[in-house]
């Protein structure tokens, strides 16, 4: 086989494996969410299906598939059916640009070079932000197409929330971009070579925390989960969705969570790098997986501990606190880099 053919073969393998692995991770993320929800409250979560209840998600999927598909009669049916996919698919695109191992260098597999990334995209960061923006469409269109007053309001509120926090996210990742000198995620990870004190989380601590907090708002998780809260009167954008369509939104939330965790670990925690130089014998994908799991654990810990913000407080935090801080972070980073070099 010649090199281009080998590359094509590897690309096809990666492109098929990646979504499968992500979906499996999502299934277990849902299971762990429920397990941790129990553990943080002093109770055990699901225990019935499978050893320690680990097959619970699969049982849930079967249940959701077997439900009646209810579409409101006067809704915009095409948009109604399309909205879950608009929320769901963009996240996978971002996974295509995240490196989960070393890229470039000599041949490492049967004499051919296997790059641990699907696409070494030169503007990977922008792709991340853009896909986040497209995800907003899914939410807003779901609310609008339901032909329900309260769904529309809920969808608009969720959409406004997600847009406001994207700005803060954009400015914080710009700080990393300045430090690495490139928007390519592969270069960003390469720029964090060394042990864990060389990673970007130390110089960019403010940006990192802002990105983390803003990502909670992007994901519509507590404390920013007004859109999905059942105790609020204005029903969320998901009201009219039942069965597997609702399941798709639910899956979309977890895929987004995995993707955002991957991005945060790539930008700030060194991506596929080991904390110590000598530990790099353990392959890169394992380290990335460990970091993603750690961040997901933190997301879940936060969700099951604190209460949610009211809507206007949520918006004011996004605009009045996070955005100025992230701009300040960018300015300080720029000054320091131009002075120190």
């Amino acid at each position: 086989m010649s090199d281009p053919v080998a590359e094509l073969v590897f690309l096809i393998i990666k492109a098929i494996l990646m979504p499968v692995i992500i979906i499996l991770m999502v299934a277990f993320a849902i299971y762990f969410e429920r397990k941790f929800a129990g553990f943080f409250a002093g109770r055990v979560g699901p225990t019935y299906l499978g050893p320690w209840g680990s097959l619970q998600s699969f049982g849930d999927v079967f249940k959701l598939i077997s439900k009646e598909d209810v579409i409101p009669s006067r809704s915009d049916k095409l948009v109604f059916k399309l909205a879950p996919y608009i929320a769901f698919v963009p996240a996978f695109l971002v996974m295509a640009v995240i490196p989960f191992g070393s890229v470039g260098g000599e041949a490492n597999l049967f004499g051919y070079r296997f790059d641990y990334v699907i696409s070494s995209f030169d503007t990977g960061l922008v792709l991340f932000l853009a896909m986040g923006a497209i995800g907003v469409y899914g939410v807003v269109l779901a609310g609008w197409s339901s032909n329900n007053n309260y769904s529309l309001l809920g969808g608009l509120r969720a959409g406004a929330q997600m847009i406001s926090y994207e700005l803060a996210m954009g400015f914080s990742v710009a700080g990393v971009m300045l430090m690495a000198g490139s928007m390519n995620l592969v270069d960003i990870v390469d720029g964090q070579a060394g042990a864990f004190w060389d990673w970007y989380w130390i110089p960019q601590i403010v940006g990192g925390v802002i990105l983390f907090v803003a990502s909670i708002a992007e994901l519509n998780r507590t404390p920013f989960d007004l859109a999905e809260a059942e105790q609020e009167l204005v029903a969320g954008h998901l009201t009219e969705y039942s069965g597997m369509r609702w399941g798709m939104f639910y899956l979309a939330e977890y895929v987004n969570m995995i993707v955002v965790s991957a991005i945060v670990s790539t930008l700030y925690l060194g991506g596929w790098r080991a904390p110590f130089e000598s530990w790099n014998v353990i392959p890169g994908p394992i380290w990335l997986f460990i970091k993603i799991c750690f961040l997901i654990f933190i997301y879940m810990w936060i969700r099951w501990t604190i209460i949610r913000y009211r809507y206007n407080q949520l918006m004011s935090i996004g605009w009045k606190v996070l955005l100025p801080l992230s701009i300040a972070n960018l300015v300080v980073t720029a000054i320091v880099i131009s002075v120190v070099g």
Partner: peptide, 13 residues
């Protein structure tokens, strides 16, 4: 607050 729920995580259920 998270430290409290963290302790609940590890003690007997």
């Amino acid at each position: 607050g998270m430290s409290v729920t963290g302790t609940y995580f590890v003690v007997d259920k």
